[in-house]
Design a protein around this nucleic acid. Structure first.
Lengths: 230, 230, 230, 230
DNA sequence: AATGAATGAGCGTTCATTCAT
DNA sequence: GATGAATGAACGCTCATTCAT
C-alpha cells in the first residue's frame, strides 16, 4: 500500500438504489479508499475467492457491514477496483504518449509508464494479472474495454510509425498490437511472480529494443519476412 | 474434448497415502481420464472455484465419492491436470524443436506446435491460461516448472541462433526468453477470449516474423538498438 | 392513506424509559403520525418482516435514527399501531352501536361501521388481518384485548336481542360472538385479497341477513335445531 | 406431532435440477417427513420468520445441510407443507361430503371433518392460519387454490340444498360460501389461540345450527330479510 | 430534536469431504 | 471399487440499533 494508490475521488457507487454515499464528506471518501486498498491487498495475497469480507474489513479497520455501505457486494469491489483504480492508470497512458513526438519514443513512453505504474502498486499488478486471465463475469467487459483502450493507443503509434517510415509497412496490425500488450503484460507477470526483487521499469528499454529490432540478425537473416503475412 | 486429450497413463496420484489405483486396469485408467476430462471441461466453462465436484461427477458419469478414489481433493485435480496433461504437452515441444536443424526453424516449430496443441484442446488452453496467472498455492510450483522447461528450450534455441549468426548477439537473454513465451501465451489468450473463431495456428508465422525482425524499419531506424541493454 | 387515518393524539410510547415526546408540540405529533402511517403502508405492502426501518424512514421522510425517537424498536411500531390506530377504531364501534335502539339495528350498525372503517384505511386492514392470525409475541395481548372488546359488544347485543325476543334463546353465546366476528373478519380478508375492487360496506346487509336468518329454509327444515347445543 | 401427520408419499421435490431424492428408499421418505414435521412444529411455535434452519434441523435430528437435500430453500418447506400436507387434508373433505345424502348433512360432515383434521394436527392448524392471512408470495397461489376447492364444495352443497328446498333461495351465493369458510376458520383460529384446551370438533354442530337457522327468532323477526340482497 | 454512518450478531445457503452400504 | 446421502464448517449479506455530531 502506498500514497499513490487510488484516486482521491468519491466513494459513490452510482447504480445502487438503497445506498448513496455522500461524496463530499472527506471521511467517507477516506473510508472508501481504505476498504478498496485493503481489499486489493487481500486479493493480491489470497486471490479473490479465498479472500473473505471479514478479512478485508479487519484489514481496513471497519466492521463487515460497513463494506456494504460502499460496495454492493464482493464482486462490486472488483468492479470498483477496475473502474476507479486500474481504469485511471490505463487512461493515464495516453498522457505519457503525448509527451513524445515520434512514434518510437511514444511507444517507449507508453511501456515505461505502464511498467512504472504497475511497479508502483504491486497489489494492483497482481490482481490485475489474475483478473485479465479469468472468466469472471462481472469483470470481463471492463477488462475488454481497458485492453481496447490500450490496443488503440498502440495501434495509433504503429500507424504513425509507418507514416514516419520508422516502422515496417508489412505488419499484421491486429497481431502487432496484441503482441506488444502481451509482451508487456507477461513482463509484469514475471516480475510479480519472481522471488527476487528487481526493477521492473528497467525492463522498458530492452523490451522496446525487442519490439523494434526483433531478435534476428538483419545482416544474415530474411527468411522470416518471406513467410510473413503481407 | 477429443481423442488426443490426456495421456493413457496411470490414474495414480503419487502422494496419496490411502488410495492407489492399479494403473494396469484399463477400466480404472479410463474412469480416471473421464473424470479429468470432465473436470477440465467444467473448469473451462465455470472457472475452478465455481465448479463443483457434483458437476464434474455428473459430467464424468460417476458418483461424487468416486472422484475421491482418484483424486485426493479438488485441488489435486488441478495438480493432476498439470502433471499429466499440460506437462506432457509441454514436454512434447522438445520433440518438435529437434525436427528442425536451424534455430529459426526450431523456434518456428516450437511456436507452431505450441499453438497447435492448445488449439487442439481449447479447455486445456482456458484452464492453463487462468492457472498461469493466479496465486494458486498448490499449482504455483508446477507452473514455474513448466515455464522453466519452456524457457530453457527457447534459451537454447536463441543461443544456438547467436552461434549460427542468425540472431543478434546483443540480447538480454533472460528477457528474450520470457518475451517469446509471453507473446505466444498472450496470442493464445486472445484466441481463447475471442468471440470470433479463427485459426490459432495460422498466427505462428506472423509471430515468428515479429520475433525475428521486430516492427522497426531497419533502413531508417537504429535508435532502439543504441539504448538497448548490451 | 387519508385524513381520517390515525388519531391526532400524542406521540408518546408510555413504556419507554428514555424518550418522552412532548405531546403538545404539533410538529412532533405530526412526525409521529407520518412515521406510523409510513410504517403501516410499508407493512401492508411487504409484510412486517420484509419491511425495513430504512424503507419506513424514507417513506416518512425522516432519518432512520429519528424513528427511534418515537418508537422503542421495530416491534413497538406494531404495538403503537394497535394501541393508537386500531384500538381507536375498535372502540369507536360502541358509539355506532349506541345510535341504534334495537339489537338487530345495533348489530347492523356495528358491522356497517366495522366494514366502513377498514375500507377507509386499507393498509390498516391488511396489517390487522395479518397480525390477528400470527403468533407475534409483543402483539398477542393487544389483539386479544381488542377481540374481547368486540366480543363483549356483540355479546351485549345478542343478550339484549334475546330479552327483546328478536333473537333465539337457545344460542351458545360464546360461539355466536366469535362466529360473528369471524365472519366479518373473513369478509374483510376476502376484500383485502381480492384482485377486483368492490365496495366492502355493501356486504354489511347481506351479512346481517345471514347472521339473523341463516341459510336454512325455516318452512322445511328443523333438523339442525334439534341437534344444537341448548 | 402424531402418527397421522403427513402422507406416506415420496419426499421428492420435482422442480429441482440438482437434487432428486430417490423416493423408493424408505429411509429417505422418512427423513423428509421428519424434517417437514419438525419444520411445521417450529413454525407453529415461533412463526416462519423467527424459525431458523438450524432449529428445524436440530428438531428433526439432522444436519443443517441435510434440509437442502429435501427442500430447495426455507420457503420451499412452506410450499411442500401446503402441497403435501394441507392440500391432502383439504382434498379429503370431498370424501366426507359424499358420505352424506342430503345437503345439510353434507355441510355437517364437511365442517366436522374440517375441525377434526385441524384438531388432529394442531401445528398444521397454527401454520395454516398464519399463512392464510399473510402476503407470502410463494404461498399465495396455493392458498387461493385450496380456498377455491373448499368454496366450490360449499357452493355445490348450498345449490343442492336450494334444489332440495332445505336452503333459502334468496342467498348471495358468493358471500355465503366465504361466510361459511370464514366462520369455520375463525373457530379454528380461536381454538388455536385459546389458553384453555377444549374439543374443537364439538363446535361442529352448534356452528351448523348457526349457519342454518341464524341467530334470529323466526317467530318475531323478519326485518333482516327485507333488507337483504335478493 | 434530528441525522445517517457505522456496527456486528445472526441467518440462509453452499459444497468439499466422508463413510456406511 | 463405487455410490450418494449426510455432514457441518464457512461465508456472504442484511438490517435493527446505536451514537457522535
Amino acid at each position: 500500500m502506498n500514497e499513490y494508490s487510488f484516486i482521491k475521488g468519491s466513494g459513490v457507487h452510482a447504480d445502487s438504489k438503497e445506498v448513496v454515499i455522500n461524496s463530499t464528506k472527506a471521511k467517507t471518501g477516506e473510508k472508501y479508499r481504505r476498504i478498496l486498498e485493503a481489499a486489493v491487498s487481500v486479493f493480491a495475497r489470497k486471490g479473490f475467492h479465498h479472500s473473505t469480507i471479514s478479512q478485508i474489513a479487519r484489514e481496513a479497520g471497519v466492521a463487515d457491514g460497513t463494506i456494504y455501505l460502499y460496495f454492493k457486494n464482493k464482486d462490486d469491489i472488483l468492479v470498483q477496483f477496475l473502474n476507479y483504480k486500474t481504469k485511471q492508470v490505463f487512461s493515464g497512458f495516453r498522457e505519457s504518449v503525448n509527451k513524445a513526438d515520434n512514434s518510437i519514443d511514444k511507444l517507449r513512453n507508453l511501456v515505461h509508464r505502464h511498467l512504472e505504474e504497475f511497479q508502483r502498486d504491486r497489489n494492483m499488478a497482481v490482481v490485475y494479472q489474475a483478473l485479465a486471465h479469468q472468466n469472471h463475469k462481472s469483470i470481463q467487459e471492463h477488462i475488454r474495454e481497458m485492453s481496447k483502450m490500450y490496443l488503440d493507443i498502440v495501434g495509433e503509434i504503429v500507424e504513425r510509425g509507418q507514416e514516419e517510415g520508422t516502422m515496417r509497412r508489412d505488419l499484421y496490425l491486429g497481431l502487432v498490437k496484441r503482441f506488444i500488450l502481451g509482451a508487456v503484460e507477461s513482463t509484469i507477470n514475471n516480475w510479480v511472480r519472481s522471488r527476487r526483487e528487481y526493477d521492473l521499469v528497467s525492463m522498458a528499454d530492452p523490451l522496446i529494443d525487442l519490439f523494434i529490432r526483433g531478435i534476428g540478425n538483419p545482416e544474415t537473416n530474411s527468411t522470416a519476412a518471406e513467410r510473413s503475412v503481407p
